[in-house]
């Protein structure tokens, strides 16, 4: 039982990272119905940017006291900003022109962008995995029979906080309203005086910034990064977004945590080598039996 609960904690913290990535997927899909394949690589880029900031600050090990908060906030902020800008640039270069093209076209450019980003990261930091400084100390807290590390707590809390902030932004601000309107009917929104291009760019900015935050957190959590990480992580995060109901923020988070749980429990009760097969089987099954996901509304084939 203890091991089971411990694995639930592991699954939730792994899922927290998926959830952060999935939020970006779901926002972009919600507004322009594009599976932004490059999103997983923007997330990896987030770890690379964070690593660059930490190197600039001369941080190579654990930091304690108030300096820790300063460094964490600064690194996350820079990573989020740079990733957000990357997202906006990608949208401008690769997707905007194809907004009215057949749907396969932007999906194919998205795959292309993903490959391009991976190769750029490979040039930048080389093809091998890179160590990431253990910035955050990792004391463990005991909750009854299980223990939870500070880093695990950080991941879970960050994912939940981000989701809530995002939810508030989208439902309580004017810009959020514009995003919802654009998602519902782009032409009508435009007629209402909403600047579609700005709104879509904003969506990319926020979604990619979240990937940047996820990038920092995962670097700290795993202590390493690699140019190719984004592929698998992106795919699983997309699975999470679909499982939760694509376009739905709470759904993305729920899906993220569920995928994390599925992975850790598969490892515990079946074996590690089957965890990917199980996760992707879940993806296939969800799409077959409940394409709208757990919290999504059913989506008819758009005419």
């Amino acid at each position: 039982m203890d091991v089971f609960l411990q694995q639930v904690i592991n699954g939730l913290s792994l899922g927290g990272i998926y959830a952060l990535i999935a939020l970006g997927y779901t926002m972009v899909y919600g507004i322009i119905e594009l599976i932004n394949f490059a999103h997983g690589d923007v997330y990896t880029l987030g770890t690379f940017f964070s690593l660059a900031v930490l190197t600039l600050l001369g941080v190579s090990g654990e930091v304690h006291g108030p300096a820790l908060i300063g460094i964490v906030v600064l690194t996350i902020a820079v990573a989020m900003l740079l990733c957000g800008l990357t997202g906006v640039i990608i949208e401008r270069l690769a997707y905007r022109r194809l907004r009215n093209a057949p749907r396969l076209a932007p999906l194919i450019t998205a795959i292309g962008m993903s490959f391009i980003l991976e190769n750029i990261m490979q040039y930048w930091r080389g093809p091998s995995p890179i160590g990431f400084p253990q910035v955050v100390p990792n004391p463990t807290f005991h909750l009854g029979p299980v223990e939870i590390g500070a880093k695990q707590l950080l991941v879970i809390v960050l994912a939940v906080v981000m989701m809530i902030v995002l939810q508030l932004f989208i439902f309580n601000t004017k810009l959020g309203k514009a995003m919802r309107a654009t998602a519902q009917d782009r032409d009508a929104a435009q007629l209402m005086g909403i600047n579609i291009n700005t709104t879509i760019a904003l969506t990319f900015l926020i979604g990619s910034a979240l990937a940047g935050a996820a990038g920092f957190v995962s670097g700290v959590y795993y202590g390493s990064t690699w140019f190719f990480n984004g592929f698998a992580a992106g795919l699983k995060a997309f699975t999470a977004a679909v499982l939760g109901g694509i376009g739905n923020l709470a759904g993305a988070m729920l899906g993220g945590f569920l995928i994390g749980l599925i992975e850790s429990l598969t490892t515990q009760f079946i074996s590690d080598q089957w965890s990917n097969v199980v996760v992707f089987s879940v993806l296939v099954l969800v799409l077959i039996f409940r394409p709208s996901g757990l919290l999504g509304e059913s989506l008819p084939n758009k005419v």
Binding site: L93, A94, I108, T109, I111, G112, M113, S114, F115, I116, L117, E118, N119, I120, Q122
Partner: peptide, 10 residues
Amino acid sequence: RLLIYGAILV
């Protein structure tokens, strides 16, 4: 290679 495949697609 990745860059070239990617660039071709885009």
